[in-house]
Amino acid sequence: MPAPKTGLPVCQHILLGLQLLQARELLMEAAQTVRSGYAKSSKAGTLAGRLTDSLDSLRSELDDRSAGEHPANEDWAPNIYYGANAETWAQTVLPIWHRHQAGNPDCCAGMPEPTR
């Protein structure tokens, strides 16, 4: 029987949060392009309006999970999944990254520092 899965380490939450934020920004651009060419009430316009719904639900679930996996310590911030401007992200998320990296864990050996 496989061992139970325990979730993601902090470094993977941070990197995944950035990937999902970038994906959301691309989807928003695509939706805007569709809405500029088609009526909001058209099928294309309606579907474009829903593009980010599943992604936002996933981000919310992962935010909840990351908070639960790293409770009552400084290894969690909502900006991991909800993003922020680059300065705020760096002030809230990078310290978490640095604390995690300080333990030299195998999960993120050799990873470059993430940037927003």
Rank of each mutant, 00 (worst) to 15 (best):
W76C: 09
D56G: 03
N79F: 10
L21M: 06
E87L: 13
M28C: 06
D64R: 15
R59P: 01
C107G: 09
L26T: 04
G103W: 08
D53K: 11
N73W: 03
A90H: 10
G7D: 03
S36M: 13
R65N: 02
A23C: 09
T92G: 02
A23S: 12
L15C: 03
H70Y: 11
I14D: 02
H100W: 15
L58V: 15
M28R: 07
L55Q: 02
S41P: 05
D53I: 12
S54E: 13
E61V: 06
G45S: 09
G110L: 07
M28T: 09
Y81T: 01
S54H: 14
L26Q: 11
A86N: 09
S42C: 08
P114E: 10
D56V: 03
L15M: 06
I14Q: 04
R116D: 01
L62M: 14
W89S: 01
H100R: 07
W76N: 14
T6F: 09
P112G: 10
R50M: 13
V93H: 07
A67P: 02
L21F: 05
T115V: 14
A84H: 04
H100A: 06
L94F: 08
R65F: 06
R24G: 07
L55D: 02
S66V: 00
N85G: 12
Q91V: 08
A48W: 00
E69W: 03
V34A: 04
